[in-house]
Design a protein around this nucleic acid. Sequence first.
DNA 1: TAGGCGTGGCT
DNA 2: TAGCCAAGCCT
Length: 300
Amino acid sequence: MTTPTPSAAAGPALHSAVLDWYSQHGRDLPWRDPDCTPWGIYLSEVMSQQTPVARVQPVWERWLQRWPTPAALAADSPGEAVRMWDGLGYPRRALRLWESARVMVEQHGGQVPRDHEDLLALPGVGAYTAAAVASFAYEDPRTVVDTNVRRVLARTVTGTQHAAPALTAAEMRLAQASMPADRDDANAWNAASMELGALICTARSPKCLECPVVHLCAWQLAGRPEHEGPARRGQAWHGTDRQVRGRIVQLLRESPDPVSRGALGTAWPDDESKLERCLAALVDDGLVEPRGGDRYSLPS
DNA sequence: TAGGCGTGGCT
DNA sequence: TAGCCAAGCCT
């Protein structure tokens, strides 16, 4: 089966403009420090999945201070990882981080693996994170495709306001075809195109007046056409299982000791069956551990 | 492959 | 104000 080549891709002019912009305007994030370890970079990538940088940074500092290596984290309890996760959201990421630290100790000599396939095999690591760690920690220029890159390419190359709701094969091919040939440029492009999407080419109100590539942006040249097709539906929140789960885990995070079933009931007083279902699901997920005596805690 | 999975800041 | 949105992953 043949894979069609994209009719257009980011070229040298786009590359150099974005790379120049990044060298001047890229944020001075601690995990971009040349002395940052692969473990520090790995932590930053997982924490940043669906969570803004501003909230990640203080938690990242605390994690790295307490657990400077994969072995240090693996030697602690998964519950402590969930507790230290604080309010970053999606606490299963903390659990998978702990599990992946154990895999690093048992299978990779206590190091973040270099090999792309080994990275992809870690729990909680998908296509984006594997490529990002390979590129940013080990200068292995994999194609990094996150929501920022997708939006930047959708606008500058494809000429549409938004990328598709979910990553498509065509987008992946476009991103691969858009990588600079030079290895160092490719790694810098991965960071720079993400950064442009995060700071300038934003989803809601893009700062086109400040954009370094506004003069060659396909969406701009087409007159900034409005998004066509069905409106993207946001996630429901109030009254969902996720809200209830969040409250239960928050109660357990804030308590140094196991919490009684009765006390957990305050997480959702109006619907006992919903609370019971969410608690059971959390236990099933490994985020909550029954301790006997009708008490519960984070996993030990 | 569409939907579940947290949290909080911004407009 | 009430959505919208944020460096995704997993099933």
